[in-house]
């Protein structure tokens, strides 16, 4: 499962400059153990510059721990890691000066207004007022918060806070932006605004690294991703390549009444997975099954193209994670 095939994807996604662009992050055999739990169990990373790289995995898979290692915030037990060709964690200060970080939790400073949050945060980078002030309007526009520049943080909605957090992460004009579940807990409207902003950043040739467990997010944003579970990389590639590699192109979901259809030869011909009383049929030739389903009465079904979620469930299993 660990046959990495980045070569073909690299050519597709980034035809120029692959020869002289060294990867922005290189990790080899990274391991981290907490008390008795292995959080990261031998992860290799090779994150190319100027693209959006995703870490996809269920809760507790080791995504956040891996991100924290990149930032020098979690010391690792084994392995080697460089960011911008600087060894970590020894050069963490220099690395973080060139990185923007959007943490999972809200860490905005409630003692300050929207604009002050950007200003004070910039001061932690040692940026002078003169350097920062001209940038603030642009950042507030980017976050759609120009009107709210003097608002207190506790008056902002969840989506506004997340947008401000992203703007804050850009205050030092970073080369690399690291986002830990950037849209978790947001409503669909707010999520779409964040996605369009992140696409803009990618188009501005920033390197993005994000963790997510939303397949739609990964499919929309990521040029390349790794699927992680139990601290290991299960596979790596572009969303399209992963779908092609792991699942049949079409899915027919039979919802409820799986028992009634399970013996049909058309069902037997497909690869099936059962979830409660629903049946997922993965196939390259959906027509015969669809014909039979349409002829039958009282069976609810859905026909759709296979997506990253199918890959994800195939690789990480269907049991519940808490």
């Amino acid at each position: 499962m660990r046959d990495v095939q980045p070569v073909q994807d690299a050519v597709i996604n980034n035809g120029v400059g692959t020869m002289n662009d060294r990867p922005i992050v290189r990790g080899l055999g990274l391991r981290k153990t907490f008390a008795e739990r292995v959080a990261v169990d031998g992860i290799d990373l090779d994150i190319p510059r100027g693209r959006c790289f995703g870490l996809l995995g269920p809760n507790g898979a080791g995504k956040t721990t891996t991100l924290r290692m990149l930032l020098g915030l979690t010391p690792f037990d084994a392995g080697t890691l460089t960011v911008f060709d600087l060894p970590m964690p020894e050069r963490a200060r220099e690395v973080r000066a060139r990185v923007g970080i959007v943490p999972q939790a809200d860490t905005l400073d409630p003692d300050f207004s929207v604009a002050e949050n950007l200003r004070v945060y910039a001061s932690y980078f040692g940026l002078s007022r003169r350097q920062v002030e001209p940038r603030i309007d642009g950042l507030l526009d980017f976050a759609n918060l120009g009107e709210r520049r003097d608002a207190r943080i506790d008056t902002l909605s969840g989506g506004m806070k997340r947008r401000l957090t992203i703007a804050r992460a850009l205050v030092n004009d970073p080369e690399l932006v690291v986002l830990d579940e950037p849209t978790t807990g947001l409503d669909p409207q707010a999520r779409h605004v964040i996605w369009s902003r992140l696409s803009e950043l990618r188009d501005a040739s920033k390197t993005l690294v994000l963790t997510t467990h939303y397949m739609e997010e990964a499919e929309r944003l990521c040029d390349e991703l790794i699927v992680v579970d139990h601290g290991r990389i299960l596979d790596r590639g572009s969303p399209r390549a992963l779908i092609k590699r792991h699942v049949e192109p079409e899915v027919i979901e039979v919802r409820g009444g799986a028992d009634a259809v399970i013996a049909w030869p058309e069902i037997q011909a497909a690869r099936t997975e059962r979830m409660g009383s629903s049946l997922y049929c993965y196939t390259r030739e959906p027509a015969p099954l669809l014909n039979r389903l349409q002829a039958a009465t009282g069976i609810v079904f859905l026909h759709r193209p296979a997506g990253l979620e199918d890959v994800f469930l195939r690789l990480t299993g269907r049991e519940l994670r808490d």
Binding site: L71, L73, R96, A97, P103, T107, P110, G126
Partner: peptide, 14 residues
């Protein structure tokens, strides 16, 4: 509760 240090640790400060 305020997670101010978490925010600061994302900058070059230690």
């Amino acid at each position: 509760p305020q997670r101010t240090y978490e925010a600061i640790l994302a900058t070059p400060l230690e």
